[in-house]
Simulated assay, not measured.
Amino acid sequence: MTAVQGDSFPRLRRRLSGWSDGLSRIGLQTKFYGYTLKGIWDAFRYYKTEIIRLIAQMGLGAGALAVIGGTIAIVGFLTLSTGALVAVQGYNQFATIGVEALTGFASAFFNVRLIAPLTAGVGMAATIGAGATAQLGAMRINEEIDALEVIGIRTIAYLASARVIAGVVVVIPLYCVAVLMSFLAARVGTTVIYGQSSGVYDHYFRTFLNPVDLIWSFLQAVAMALAIMLVHTYYGFTASGGPAGVGEAVGRAVRTSLIIAALVTVMISLAVYGQSGNFNLSG
């Protein structure tokens, strides 16, 4: 009996300790997110120049990345490929039942509600978000953040809140490019490659494209950008362990932000469209 107790209690303590550490990390992250959102006003008030610099850097990139247009060009190419995939899969799947004319419906329905927001979120997490985590992590391990605090700079507002504001601002043209590229790729793939009449495609595309869905999709992209930037700034701000720790923080941040982006998409889609998708097709 003694041997059994001696074997079980350490396991129980380790399990309880793991749960306690997990809840503690959630509490610390929530506290940081609260301070970051609270610091948005201070960032607008005291650090407007830094916000403008970050917007330019995130949108157009720096160095060699600026040559191809930065994040906006990268997300444009990503959504171009996903829009082409809608044309390929949609046309072939509808053709099996003889309704390939509905490919325009697939572009208007799936690109707006799922594909364009998620693709923009993935592109933002992999470029803007990862860059923010790496920058803040490098500043943390080089003790630059501590130096800013010593001279009286509000570090969370200056470093985290400013990047959250810049990310939300940059996602506006980012998402516009993403939606347009996905529409363009689907139309070109269907009408040029598969030879469908452009009139037929445009008829079904315009019939099923709901402007209200575009507005909700845009708000969904903004919510995703806010969540992604909060996650990435936290992991960068709390990085430790030297250069290897910064790399680990970037990996953890990207993984977490991708999960958050998918969760935000599901939550908003269910809240706005419901289980049925608010869609009825009848002949």
Rank of each mutant, 00 (worst) to 15 (best):
V4K: 13
G6S: 11
P10M: 05
R11S: 10
L12S: 06
R13I: 12
R15P: 03
R15L: 13
S17D: 14
W19G: 03
S20P: 02
D21F: 10
L23G: 04
R25N: 12
Q29E: 09
T30Y: 11
T30M: 11
K31Y: 15
Y33L: 06
Y33H: 11
G39K: 09
G39P: 08
I40Y: 02
I40L: 11
I40V: 13
D42W: 01
A43E: 08
A43W: 12
K48F: 12
E50G: 13
E50Q: 12
Q57C: 01
M58V: 01
G59Q: 03
G61R: 08
G63H: 11
A64Q: 13
L65T: 12
I68E: 06
I68W: 11
I68N: 05
G70D: 08
A73Q: 06
F77L: 15
L78D: 07
S81E: 07
A84R: 00
L85M: 04
V86A: 03
V86G: 01
Q93T: 13
Q93N: 12
G98C: 06
G98M: 10
V99D: 03
E100D: 12
L102V: 00
G104C: 00
R113S: 01
A116S: 12
A116D: 00
P117F: 02
A120R: 02
V122P: 01
I128A: 14
A132T: 15
T133L: 03
T133M: 11
A134I: 02
A134N: 12
A134W: 08
G137L: 03
G137M: 05
A138S: 15
N142R: 14
I151V: 14
A157I: 08
Y158T: 07
A160E: 03
A160T: 01
S161Q: 07
S161D: 00
A166T: 07
I172V: 15
L174P: 04
Y175Q: 09
L180G: 14
A185G: 00
A185R: 01
A186F: 01
R187A: 13
I193W: 15
I193N: 02
Y194H: 12
G195V: 08
S197F: 10
S198I: 15
S198K: 06
H203I: 04
R206K: 09
P211D: 06
P211E: 04
V212I: 11
I215Q: 05
S217Y: 03
F218D: 05
F218G: 10
V222W: 00
V222Q: 09
V231N: 02
H232K: 07
F237M: 12
T238P: 04
T238Q: 06
S240C: 04
P243M: 08
P243W: 01
A244Q: 11
G245W: 14
G245Q: 07
G245P: 07
V246M: 08
E248Q: 12
A249W: 04
A253F: 10
T256H: 10
L258W: 03
A261T: 14
T265E: 14
V266I: 14
I268D: 08
I268W: 09
I268T: 10
S269P: 00
A271P: 04
V272E: 08
S276P: 00
N278G: 15
L281S: 08
L281R: 06
L281T: 01
